[in-house]
Write a protein that binds this DNA or RNA. Structure first.
Length: 368
DNA sequence: AAGGGTGACAACCGCCAGGTG
DNA sequence: ACACCTGGCGGTTGTCACCCT
């Protein structure tokens, strides 16, 4: 039986995917793909009705797949808010930094990279970033120098890493250690403690923002992360309820809020660790009724499509900080569209800081 | 030109957590 | 308390395209 022409927007290596269907028909034998001539059905169904209960989607949409498979297809491929194409250097830097703090929590990392999926990031990490880090002499698992003797000296025997595949074990649960999963949990768990995080967060009102770390090393790597989190975590997550109930005036947007002056360190910690629902996640609500709530923002239609989707997962756009996160995060790579305003500029500056910070951090690691 | 190596990508698989009856 | 279902996540595999020798 000749499989029908796939509808998947696959493209050749290195060529950016487009959201239009059938740009480059994939090889029909590519596993799984031949079944995805149903992409259009799935896309249409979810666009119209939302996914609701995934297990019922295949039946309702007339697909021959299980709900789980449909969900995966939607999340990793059909979601209209997906950003296609190669990762920018800034994105890669952010991934590395987030990986250092979160470990292999791809979904949480993906939540901080708008338009990117956990699968995408995971693939990038395994196929590209890992190698790059090793070439730079950094253990991609521990984010520490790879030099054998030094690494062995600093790490207990069971923490030794090899150039081959790492077999990390999760650190013991602790209220004060980042619940890192995978390799990053090793040494980083020891270094990244709640206290260290709070040290970064709870500086006095006259202190300089954390975007200008004064000391290289882990705490330095944490600072930009915290800055990022402070700006991009939902206000309701990182601020006390009373504070979050009063949205900042719109004209305050271009200047990022003093990252931590209004932030509670514990909330920041929760944000980092994922406690308290602080993650800005892209998964759609299971409620189809809320999935495509109309957006109050006069976005161009092109943007509106996925903005509607996002609107179901992000806080109300009136929470301008979140809007800024959403817009700027996307525009970091796709420097076009309607969001090139002060927010974007601010975010780009921040991203630039991250990039420079990461370079310093990498250099610092090399000196350890 | 041919073959092997490598990168990129999508999908599969198994496990786990939360919700529900 | 228990079993079941569902959704979500992370690790792994399979496939194709490109690059290099």
């Amino acid at each position: 039986m000749v499989p029908p022409a796939p509808l998947s927007p696959l493209s050749a290596k290195g060529k950016p995917h487009s959201l239009s269907l059938h740009p480059t028909p994939p090889h029909p034998t590519r596993h799984g793909l031949k079944l995805w001539a149903e992409d259009e059905k799935l896309l249409s169904h979810i666009t119209k009705h939302g996914h609701g209960c995934w297990s019922s989607v295949p039946k309702q949409a007339g697909l021959q797949r299980c709900g789980k498979s449909c969900r995966l297809r939607w999340i990793n491929y059909l979601r209209p808010d997906l950003k296609r194409g190669t990762f920018s250097q800034q994105e890669e830097d952010l991934i590395i930094e987030l990986h250092a703090a979160l470990g292999n929590r791809w979904s949480q990392i993906a939540a901080r990279l708008p338009g990117r999926t956990d699968n995408e990031i995971k693939n990038l990490w395994n196929s590209s970033i890992k190698k790059k880090l090793r070439q730079k002499g950094i253990d991609p698992t521990t984010h520490r120098p790879l030099s054998g003797a030094a690494a062995a000296e600093k790490a207990p025997p069971d923490e030794k890493t090899s150039l081959d595949d790492q077999r990390p074990t999760a650190p013991p649960p602790s209220d004060h250690a980042l619940p890192l999963v995978g390799g990053a949990g090793k040494s980083m768990a020891a270094a990244l403690t709640k206290d260290s995080v709070l040290d970064q967060v709870n500086y006095g009102p006259s202190s300089s923002p954390p975007s200008a770390p004064t000391a290289p090393g882990l705490s330095a790597s944490l600072s930009p992360l915290l800055l990022w989190l402070s700006q991009n975590c939902r206000p309701s997550d990182v601020c006390p309820p009373a504070a979050s109930s009063v949205p900042p005036p719109p004209n305050s947007l271009p200047s990022p809020p003093p990252p931590c002056t209004s932030l509670n360190g514990d909330h920041i910690w929760d944000c980092i660790t994922g406690r308290g629902g602080a993650d800005v996640e892209f998964h759609g609500s299971c409620s189809s009724s809320s999935l495509f709530d109309s957006s109050p923002l006069p976005w161009p239609e092109e943007e509106l499509k996925w903005a509607e989707y996002l609107n179901s997962t992000f806080p109300a756009p009136s929470a301008m900080q979140s809007h800024g996160m959403f817009a700027a995060g996307v525009d970091v790579v796709r420097a076009e569209g309607p969001f090139q305003g002060g927010v974007l500029g601010t975010w780009l500056q921040v991203a630039d800081v991250y990039s420079r910070d990461f370079q310093r951090i990498s250099a610092a690691f090399g000196q350890i």
